[in-house]
Design a protein around this nucleic acid. Structure first.
Lengths: 152, 152
DNA sequence: GAAGAATATTTGTCAAGTCAAATATATTCT
DNA sequence: AGAATATATTTGACTTGACAAATATTCTTC
């Protein structure tokens, strides 16, 4: 993510920089939380397992779109996670091009652990925001996202 | 950033994912804006030039901290930008270890162009937010950032 | 003022992501 | 049906950033 350096002052950062800072701190915090539980998982891998845990088996491309990851990168992450025994590539019943990615028992168990980590980190991150403020933050971010996607 | 794929539905994304999505769209939008002006600059390079333009000459490490970039990565970005003639590495008057990075005339000119791009993209991104909401968004993000940094 | 600790820069190595090409299969159109 | 087009997955080449080691210089402390 970045080198471990003292925090710079941040007097009125632009939105782009600020978003980057918040995200990288969040990723760092999440990876630290995972490491403290003895889990060797990167943030991307956590996201993949989370998706599968929450939404059930799906195609590799669906997964890739869901976590905003390139198809090639997804293939390699699946190799990795399959190698660790957390998921399985099964043939897809309707589409012989596609794969059905599903969690193994170990993957399900891991996912249950991950849920806790995730909640703790998010709670810590938002601890200075009230309920209304959290909803607003979410709302604003979604509106910015839509504004960027639906150009003009 | 990511492959060019149709936008997935995003029903109640978690904060981590949402931040990533917004940031990557913003970066993509900014790079597209730069490209449309015929400029071949990545987002990181834009950030570096912006810092130098706004704050004046500074050390390579100050610059690295300011844009949250690793020192090694900064060296290579400086190589690149110096090669393109946008900046110069000068000896530092007080500290012989350090460099004084300053924009060339071409760099200054480029910076003036960049300012416009930056403002257009940020305005587009926030166009659905009112003045109060923009301030709130900024405020919330900074509070989240501080919460993550000052653990407990 | 000299030893030790800290900082600035550069370089090598590695991990992860993007892009483009290759292959296999589905879908659409005529 | 057959052709053209689109999608799913994999792989290789390339880029970028993180981390660690090396070197030069400055700061601290005894």
């Amino acid at each position: 993510m970045k080198a471990d350096i003292p925090h710079p002052p941040d007097p009125q950062e632009s939105l782009g920089v600020l978003l980057g800072l918040v995200r990288s701190e969040l990723v760092r915090a999440m990876e630290a939380e995972l490491a403290s539980k003895g889990l060797d998982l990167r943030f991307t891998q956590f996201l993949i397992l989370k998706r599968l845990g929450m939404l059930g088996p799906m195609t590799a491309s669906e997964l890739a779109r869901a976590v905003e990851l390139d198809g090639g990168a997804m293939t390699r992450q699946l190799d990795h996670l399959e190698g660790k025994g957390y998921l399985r590539r099964c043939p897809h019943a309707q589409d012989r091009r596609a794969l059905r990615i599903e969690l193994t028992a170990a993957g399900e168990a891991l996912w249950r652990e991950l849920t806790g980590c995730n909640e703790r980190v998010l709670a810590a991150a938002q601890r200075s925001l009230g309920e209304t403020e959290r909803r607003r933050l979410h709302d604003y971010l979604e509106r910015v996202l839509h504004a960027l996607r639906d150009k003009h």
